[in-house]
């Protein structure tokens, strides 16, 4: 199958889909010449992220081989990853105790 998603770095635990992926459809990707496929357990909007493996609450979400924030709940492989289940670690003035 033609690739419909991008894994930016081999360390990543999320991929970016290049088209809308409906619930139950598969994503296809390739990293370091290795094929990868995974079934989406919910709809992923185009150019949004899907979890490639289970990510536990409090673990780093990795894209481009770097942390893009922490999981705020347990995320299962194939689930949609966005602001509802990850949060930024930076510029968080709201977390400073006065």
């Amino acid at each position: 199958m033609k690739n419909n998603s991008v894994i930016a770095n081999s360390k990543d635990n999320v991929a970016t889909v290049c088209t809308v992926i409906k619930k139950g459809e598969k994503i296809y990707s390739e990293i370091n010449n290795k094929k990868f496929e995974l079934k989406a357990v919910e709809e992923i909007p185009d150019f949004h992220k899907i979890a490639l493996k289970d990510i536990k609450q409090g673990e780093n979400v990795i894209k481009y081989g770097e942390s893009i924030g922490l999981a705020t709940k347990n995320i299962k492989a194939g689930e949609y990853v966005h602001v509802h289940n990850i949060e930024s670690n930076r510029g968080r003035g709201d977390k400073i105790v006065k």
Partner: peptide
């Protein structure tokens, strides 16, 4: 929280979840 402005609402709709 910087997320009040960064990423912007449009960035978030476009799939960017965090400033990182």
């Amino acid at each position: 929280d910087l997320r009040g402005s960064q990423p912007t609402p449009g960035n978030i709709e476009g799939g960017l979840s965090t400033i990182e």
